[in-house]
Amino acid sequence: MELTFFIAAAVAVLATIMVVTQYNLIHALLYLVVSFLAISVVFFTLGAPFMAALEIIIYAGAIVVLIIFVIMMLNLTQEDIQHEKEWLKPRIWIGPAVLSMILLVELVYIVTADTPDTYRSTPVEAQAVGMSLFGPYVLGVQLSGMLLMAGIVGAYHLGRQKKKVIHRFLERTDA
């Protein structure tokens, strides 16, 4: 079981490095999804299946939505589809695919293994997570609500103006 943890962790690190080093946004996002999947497997091997599921639903799910937004903003034309065909070479998708394949193999192994015990201690079930979130840590949950409120109010204010702002380094100086 220990080995599955290390492999998944290695995949996560590798995928995340690729996210940072990719120039193309979409390619980076592909690796980002893989990175989330790998972290989810890490959670799973550490005995937190509920967290693993949340990781997939929230992060990988939300990121897919992000991809959709990006594609919507790109305003696709026939020319872009042509570009897409040129871009979508094995060289691009083979990396994320191999990494995902490793994770899939791991998952199959974990599920079919004889000893379904986890890396450390007993698994933490959804009920236990809920009990502690709304038991001792209820103040923390409420504070997170305030955090979201600050984020939304801030984003609303900053996002609504369309004033063109030029960075001071790009300003033209009338010498």
Partner: peptide
């Protein structure tokens, strides 16, 4: 984080100013 996230928006509150 509550403090920082509020500050992100507060710092750039006056959008019309370049800096």
């Amino acid at each position: 984080e509550v403090l920082s996230v509020s500050l992100y928006a507060l710092i750039s509150y006056l959008r019309t100013r370049e800096k």
